[in-house]
């Protein structure tokens, strides 16, 4: 470990995903969500045309952007960017205007039906603070997800995110996400 503050990031290798939705269930359980609410989801994407055709499961969630549109548009400062890279929400200050939901290209935010504030993936901040990994990462049976500190040059995520195969999705929207994908 280095002395520098961590910069949390995640790598999602879609070539390994079998679409079991264990990450979705783990997230649901960890964050005690109500039934219609999700912080992560598994989309199905199609590539190419028959016979050169491919279909992939594609896990999606908050990308914890370095230039998050949701933080910029929030009128009360409820959405903010932490120094460790996590995009967080101060639920006490959220008035539920839903401007951030509309500003998010990844459709990662939703309204808490019980209390009315907007919430989303927090990289399981409470688990990270206990030196554990986010629930979706530990649950995944095929090791699709790799979570770690980008400021630590020896971490697996630093090595993997620098590889040629990884991409950040929606990068040309000037968001610079902290989630890296291997689409393959």
């Amino acid at each position: 470990m280095t002395d520098k503050k961590p910069k949390w990031a995640m790598l999602i290798d879609t070539t390994k995903c079998v679409g079991c939705l264990a990450c979705v269930a783990a997230c649901h359980n960890q964050n005690e969500l109500l039934v219609p609410e999700f912080f992560n989801r598994v989309e199905e994407r199609e590539f190419g045309h028959f016979p050169n055709y491919n279909r992939r499961f594609f896990p999606m969630q908050c990308q914890h952007c370095d230039r998050p549109p949701c933080v910029g548009v929030c009128p009360t400062g409820a959405s903010y960017k932490r120094s460790d890279g996590i995009v967080a929400i101060d639920t006490q200050r959220c008035i539920g205007c839903k401007y951030c939901i509309l500003s998010c290209p990844y459709n990662a935010r939703s309204v808490n039906k019980e209390h009315g504030y907007v919430h989303k993936c927090s990289f399981c901040t409470s688990l990270i603070e206990k030196n554990e990994q986010p629930a979706c990462v530990t649950t995944c049976p095929t090791r699709v997800r790799v979570f770690g500190d980008l400021n630590d040059p020896n971490s697996e995520i630093s090595r993997l995110s620098a590889s040629k195969k990884t991409v950040q999705i929606g990068k040309d929207l000037n968001t610079n996400p902290s989630i890296y994908y291997i689409i393959g």
């Binding site: 200050r93 008035i95 539920g96 205007c97 839903k98």
Partner: peptide
């Protein structure tokens, strides 16, 4: 239209 109309004063 706000989800929490009582907090509108935060604006």
């Amino acid at each position: 239209d706000l989800e929490r109309p009582l907090l509108f004063w935060l604006l």
